[in-house]
Design a protein around this nucleic acid. Structure first.
Length: 837
RNA sequence: GCCGAGGUGGCGAAAUUGGUAGACGCACUUGCCUUAGGAGCAAGCGGGGUAACCCAUGGAGGUUCAAGUCCUCUCCUCGGCACCA
């Protein structure tokens, strides 16, 4: 018998499939559909390492099974090629980004092709293709039209290394996610998308998604909803007022001062009334110098400056309150101003003690709580000392009601309770008082989000031009739809300018154009879109990739949408997956799509770490290249190994040593062919066969590839042990294995005399009647410990089992001379005997 | 601090509604076969013990005939959020 020559077999079948167009998408509307999608890669200069294909192998297996189960399957692939990495690669290697992207894309495609994926390459998309980004621009125009895109001059995150503005989602711990430079706040002109308008809907729809809990929770945290009240504090002797946001309007009577964030706009308006304006300016400038990380470090000493000459009126009781500017209040959350209630908020408490401001208690903790000391103040550090912290715990339920902070004879309690010192609201429960007090002072009940509007412009070259024209007469005018795409022009220098303008600004002949509205002279917008723009909707384009009239044909969209299975890394939880959901909901609102959510089901792929435990990277020199593994062990072995390594969603360490296991398995399958050709009608393997059919199908459905493969290994072990088995049984094994190892199974399938591709075969149907066995092994427990096992006929009665068990020496040994209290039979599993002493 | 996911052999890991813990694979040990083997075959492989047995799923309690699985407390690891009012 000839050797298993993976190289010859894999090349042969890849060429044959290609020639036959085996993986063209079947648009058969008679069948149910299944849209299986990978997060498309960013073709970097490093090429693929073995970690990249892991997710692609999974979707390949899943989509192959779905095809065999009779679904119309859409399984496409494309390239997310705009953005900084491509541009930086291009600058470094002194080539045009276009050239770099084409080169890297070709390399990626080559690397993917040897693994034997079933992608329909006729539907390939590339975000940098003008025919594609025409529609990226079109979506922007629609958003502009609906008022969802607006121009802003607010200070935004600026990365001094990448020389561009960034969205919040592009940061990690206050640093640029790409280059790890600490970002600065820089006021500049920019385009912003009102993603916050969709915050509530994104939050509301999240629970219904079949996504990993961790991703859903991350998104909820990221959106960060909180409900509270906006309350106005009138400034004395002025028409002006300070609006604060609070989640605790029930404590309004306890407010003893008001704080503005250093960046609050009102400050400048108060310039003339503030007698110590110089101090305020000094403080504000100092605060602005701080990075976001320094500024928001919890437990940092609180500082502030009183606005001398200013006071505001507490609308609840007409008390006159002083106003401070302090950097513990953040300009970008809520209204940038808070009412301070030192008796019921820890931060206000520390600040008040430092500046000797009154602490006014208005909430009484319920009776019957235990004080549990969690932190004993040291009294060292700043002069205020650290408060002692107690948890107030319910005696009966153990539930924590809140924290109590004690320092210098004063107390601060942050939990719920009954109101005191609150006039007509005394005796009310704090939760009930929230809305009542808000109404009493004519406040507004509002919802705030942590999520910020999406800073959507980048001062870089390699992105989609924003399709707007600035006209002196008409202002900002959208480019007419018929003039899309606005093609990214060729430039001499595509390096960033750092001036807040993109390199496009230098190309006069491109910038200068006519106003679509009045025909007068206009200038093109020179900012480009962020990398996330194309990836926020690309999945729709695969449905109808060549359509020039519409982003996607409605009928096609309603058949294929939504994506049934989406696979990619968990790092996209609060970036791509948020943006795409926002885009999709917008497209739903304007009638482009029929479904409110883009991705019905999501599976996270776990990373593959290098053998040294670090991430695979050129930098560490620990990269394993899939091409090498394909050459030495074969694509089928690589595929099998990556799926067998561990649970799919978990990160695992690569081990070249362990690849031999899956390879041996394939060799066994290969050798079984000889036995299969001596076909008989033997059916003794039916039980294990059908158990395997069930297990493999169920496991692929839930992405339990490791256990699916182990059950196939068990089947093969059984077939090796068996004297003989039928030809059909061997072919069933090949079909079950085909999604995992498409090449070797195709070869063996043809060797068995089949002429059609195995990948067009029908998925075997599980027949429960075939798994019925005649004998079972029963475990005998005495007082919970297994003392013996008996093999007996499945239909043996409980009484007979008990009788047999009591006659076994291994059992009698443990029960002789003892009283049998109870005997419990679990059908087909065990007998539990309980004896006394 | 808040929210979420996890802790099982030398290693990667399995384990229906609670029902024989460690399937499957790697590594390792012994033997066979081989000129040889990083090939194949057979057997073994959680720890202790000659054995009978005993002990084992991060730790401590609990429920149960029976707990990796359920409950309470606790320790550790990873991910998201965090001076967010």
């Amino acid at each position: 018998m000839e050797k298993y020559d993976h190289k010859a077999i894999e090349q042969k079948w890849q060429a044959a499939w290609e020639a036959a167009g085996l993986y063209r998408t079947s648009d058969n509307r008679e069948k149910p559909k299944c849209y299986v999608l990978d997060m498309f890669p960013y073709p970097s200069g490093e090429g693929l390492h073995v970690g990249h294909p892991k997710g692609y192998i999974a979707t390949d297996i899943y989509s192959r099974m779905k095809t065999m189960q009779g679904f119309s399957v859409l399984h496409p692939m494309g390239w997310d090629a705009f953005g900084l990495p491509a541009e930086q690669y291009a600058i470094k290697n002194k080539v045009h980004p276009r050239v770099a992207v084409d080169k890297n894309t070709a390399r990626y495609k080559e690397q993917l092709s040897v693994i034997g994926f079933n992608y329909d390459w006729e539907r390939e998309v590339n975000t940098t293709d003008p025919a594609f980004y025409k529609w990226t621009q079109w979506i922007f125009l629609k958003m502009f039209e609906k008022g969802l895109a607006y121009e802003s001059y607010e200070p935004i995150n600026w990365c001094p290394t990448c020389q561009t503005g960034l969205a919040n989602e592009d940061l990690e711990d206050g640093k640029c996610e790409r280059c790890e430079t600490v970002v600065e706040k820089k006021p500049m002109r920019q385009w912003v998308l009102r993603i916050t308008d969709y915050a509530d809907r994104m939050l509301a729809d999240i629970d219904a998604l079949d996504w990993p809990t961790s991703i859903k929770e991350s998104q909820k945290n990221w959106i960060g909803r909180s409900e509270g009240a906006e309350i106005d504090f009138a400034i004395e002797g002025s028409e002006k007022k300070i609006t604060v946001f609070t989640t605790r309007p029930d404590t309004l009577f306890g407010a003893t001062y008001v704080v503005l964030a250093p960046e609050h706009k009102l400050l400048d308006e108060l310039k003339d009334s503030v007698t110590n304006w110089g101090d305020v300016v000094t403080y504000r400038d100092e605060a602005k110098k701080q990075s976001e990380i320094e500024r928001t470090a919890a437990g940092r000493e609180k500082t502030g400056v009183k606005l001398e000459g200013i006071s505001v009126v507490n609308p609840a009781n007409d008390d006159k309150l002083p106003v401070f500017v302090a950097d513990y209040v953040l300009g970008h959350y809520g209204t940038g101003a808070v009412m301070a209630v030192p008796a019921h908020d820890e931060r206000d408490f520390t600040f008040a003690q430092k500046y000797r401001l009154p602490v006014m208690q208005v909430i009484e903790a319920p009776d019957g709580l235990i004080e549990k000391n969690v932190y004993r103040g040291t009294g060292i550090g700043n002069w205020v000392g650290h408060p002692e912290i107690y948890e107030l715990v319910d005696k009966n339920t153990g539930k924590i009601f809140g924290n109590l902070y004690k320092n210098l004879g004063e107390e601060c309690y942050d939990g719920k309770g009954l109101l005191i010192n609150s006039n007509q609201f005394n005796g009310e429960y704090s939760e009930d008082a929230k809305k009542k007090i808000t109404d009493f002072v004519k406040g507004r009940w509002v919802t705030k989000y942590r999520l910020k509007d999406w800073v959507f412009s980048r001062q870089r070259y390699w992105g989609e031009p924003i399709p707007l024209i600035h006209c002196e007469k008409c202002g900002v005018v959208p480019v007419a739809e018929k003039d899309l795409p606005v093609v990214l022009p060729q430039v001499e220098s595509y390096a960033p300018t750092g001036t807040g303008e993109s390199p496009l600004a230098d190309i006069a002949e491109w910038v200068n154009t006519s106003c679509p509205k009045c025909g007068g002279s206009g200038k093109r917008e020179t900012n480009t879109m962020p990398q996330w723009a194309g990836s926020s909707w690309y999945y729709l384009r695969y449905i109808d990739p060549k359509n020039e009239q519409a982003l996607v044909d409605k009928e096609k969209e309603s058949y294929w949408s939504p994506v049934d299975m989406y696979v990619g890394g968990a790092e996209h939880a609060t970036r791509h997956l948020i943006y795409a959901r926002f885009y999709h909901k917008f497209l739903y609102d304007i009638g482009v799509v029929n479904y409110q959510e883009p991705f019905k089901r999501l599976q996270n792929v776990g990373l593959i770490m290098a053998e040294d435990g670090r991430k695979m990277s050129k930098r560490w020199g620990n990269v394993i290249n899939p091409d090498d593994i394909v050459a030495t062990h074969g694509a089928d072995t690589l595929r099998l190994y990556e799926m067998f390594m561990g649970p799919f969603g978990q990160s695992v360490v690569w081990s070249t040593e362990s690849i031999i296991g899956p390879r041996r398995f394939l060799e066994r399958v290969w050798r079984l062919k000889e036995k299969a050709l001596k076909s008989t009608n033997e059916s003794s393997l039916d039980a294990v066969m059908h158990k395997t059919i069930k297990k493999v199908g169920d496991d692929i459905e839930v992405f339990g590839f490791n256990t699916a493969i182990s059950s196939l290994m068990i089947l093969v072990n059984e077939m090796e042990k068996a004297e003989e088995f039928s030809r059909e049984q061997y072919e069933t094994l090949l079909v079950l294995l085909a999604p995992f190892a498409p090449h070797i199974t195709e070869e063996l399938w043809h060797e068995m005399g089949n002429t059609d591709s195995i990948h067009l075969a029908t998925w075997p149907v599980f027949d429960p009647s075939k798994t019925v066995v005649s004998e079972v092994t029963i475990a005998i427990q005495v007082n919970g410990k297994v003392r013996d096992t008996i093999v007996l006929a499945i239909e043996t009665s409980d009484e007979a089992i008990k009788e047999m068990a009591l006659a076994r020496p291994a059992v009698t040994k443990w029960i002789d001379g003892k009283e049998i209290k109870k005997m419990i039979v679990v059908k087909g599993k065990l007998l539990s005997i309980v004896v006394g002493d």
